[in-house]
Each structure stands twice: as structure tokens, then as C-alpha cells.
């Protein structure tokens, strides 16, 4: 507690245990990432193949997640859909967080009119509710994967920008950045060495959060029939096409929705425990 001793003894290096919730979240996220990459390979059936005469069958050993409204294997369809739900959202998140980070950093470091201009433009963008913007874009351009990635990416850029900017502005005012400036370091050095390394934690957490928002937005669109178009299907579309089975309580309706929930809750649990991860990494680095 006291630092009176001069020189003070070396502080104990604390090793923090990886919290259970964080671990579980990490496993869930990793699992779905794997499925987005290799899902179609491990799926027992082809996504579009009708394998059962019966529709909306409950869970059986043969069809672990039942069958859908045409008698297709739900497990296979969910595994195939992972590519769309996870992949498209990941691309859009990369776009939103990437452009947000670049713009936010530039605004913070250069300030002045650039900051004003970018902030005002993005403020206008965020004056529209996210679903509304997506609906308007889809109405105008129709729905396709590039349109979905672009519009989700644009919608969530202002949020990422605001976080990145406020972090960078805060760090930019730190004395160690002032010292680097007074030393005559270039802007590139200051951004790379002094600012960026100190904002990775919050930026990563924000990336996760934004990913969750985008997954929810895109599956919401698909649920409305305005997202991924048939014959391809993400998890939102799977819920939509099987909504007829709701009255029977068919797993075909619930399972894709639960898949989304497991992904988003997993990401949430992971980022909530990023702090512990950071401290551990710091202790070992």
C-alpha cells in the first residue's frame, strides 16, 4: 500500500485467473467462428437437401435439431447459415470499427476543422435509427451481401468513431504524449507508439459490442425478409421461413434464434472479462 520505501521492493506479479464467464464466452465465440469457416464441411447434410418426409419434426437422434418446413435438416442449415450470420457481420464490423478508428484517431490527433467536419457528418448519420437507415437502403438498392455489409458498416461507424475519438483525445492529452511531442516525434510515431497501444482494450471491447449490434441488425432484417435472400439463409432467415412452426413449438423456429443468442451472449461475456485478460497479458509481457 505504501510507497514510502525507497527504492520500493518489486511489486508482486499478480496472476489473475481467467474468469469462468469469460472462458465460456471465448469458447462460444471460437466455436461459431470455426463453424463460419468449416460449418459446411462438418454439416451432416447439404443445406438445401430435403431429407425427411415429415416437416417440423422435433429433435431426434437422426435430426438433432429437427427438420424445417420443407423437411430439411436444421443442424445442417444452421451450420451453413453461420457463414452468413458470422461472416457478413464480421465484415461489416471490421468496416465500421476500422473506419471509426481511423477517422477518430485523425480527428483527435489533428483536431481543428477536420475534427469538426468529421464529427458533424457522422452526427447527421447517427440522427437516423439504425434499422430505419438499413430499411431505406434496402428499399433503394435491394438486398445483397455487399449492400448489407456496406450499410451495416456505415450505420455503426459513428458509434465506433465516437469511442475511438474520445479515447484518443484522452490519451492525446496525457503527459507522456506531450513529452513525445516536445521531443519532436513525428505524428506517425506518436500514433503508433504512444496512442494506439493504450487504446487496444477499449477498442476491442467496442468491436465486440458493435459485432453484437450488427448481428442483431442483420438477423432482424433477414427475419423481415429483407436481409440475406433465398436460397441462401442466415439464422434470421431460418427463423422467418420456419415461423409457421411456432404454433407447434417446433425446434426449427427456436434453434436458429438460440444460435444467435448464444453468439451474442458469448461475445458479451468475452468482452466483459477482457479486463482480466489484459491484466494477465500485462503481467506476463
Amino acid at each position: 500500500m505504501s510507497e514510502a520505501a525507497q527504492p520500493a521492493p518489486a511489486p508482486r506479479r499478480k496472476r489473475r485467473r481467467w474468469p469462468l464467464a469469460g472462458l465460456l464466452g471465448g469458447v462460444l465465440v471460437l466455436f461459431w467462428l470455426m463453424m463460419a469457416l468449416f460449418g459446411p464441411m462438418v454439416a451432416p447434410h447439404e443445406a438445401g437437401r430435403i431429407v425427411d418426409m415429415d416437416v417440423f419434426t422435433p429433435m431426434t437422434a437422426k435430426f438433432p435439431l429437427g427438420t424445417d418446413y420443407l423437411g430439411r435438416d436444421m443442424l445442417s442449415r444452421i451450420l451453413h447459415g453461420a457463414r452468413y450470420t458470422v461472416g457478413v457481420a464480421l465484415l461489416a464490423t471490421l468496416m465500421a470499427s476500422g473506419s471509426g478508428l481511423i477517422l477518430g484517431m485523425s480527428a483527435a490527433v489533428w483536431g481543428g476543422w477536420l475534427d469538426m467536419l468529421v464529427s458533424r457528418c457522422l452526427d447527421t448519420l447517427s440522427a437516423m435509427p439504425s434499422k430505419m437507415f438499413a430499411l431505406v437502403v434496402v428499399a433503394a438498392f435491394g438486398s445483397s451481401v455487399p449492400v448489407l455489409v456496406l450499410s451495416a458498416g456505415i450505420i455503426y461507424t459513428p458509434g465506433a468513431y465516437r469511442i475511438a475519438r474520445s479515447l484518443a483525445v484522452g490519451i492525446n492529452a496525457m503527459d507522456y504524449v506531450r513529452i513525445a511531442r516536445a521531443r519532436g516525434e513525428s505524428t506517425a510515431f506518436i500514433v503508433r507508439e504512444e496512442i494506439l497501444p493504450n487504446m487496444t482494450g477499449p477498442v476491442l471491447a467496442d468491436f465486440g459490442l458493435r459485432f453484437v449490434f450488427i448481428v442483431l441488425l442483420l438477423s432482424g432484417l433477414s427475419f423481415l425478409g429483407l436481409g440475406i435472400q433465398p436460397p441462401e439463409a442466415d439464422w434470421g432467415s431460418l427463423v422467418r421461413e420456419n415461423i409457421g412452426g411456432l404454433a407447434e413449438g417446433a425446434p426449427a423456429v427456436l434453434m436458429p434464434a438460440l444460435a444467435i443468442a448464444s453468439l451474442t451472449i458469448g461475445v458479451n461475456m468475452l468482452i466483459d472479462n477482457l479486463g482480466g485478460f489484459r491484466r494477465r497479458a500485462g503481467g506476463e509481457g
Binding site: D175, Y176, E193, P197
Partner: peptide, 11 residues
Amino acid sequence: FQMADTALNPS
């Protein structure tokens, strides 16, 4: 600077 905490890059 005054605050050694903010004067050293924590990472």
C-alpha cells in the same frame, strides 16, 4: 511532469 502516472506510457 507532475503526475508520474500520466507521464509514462503505461504499455
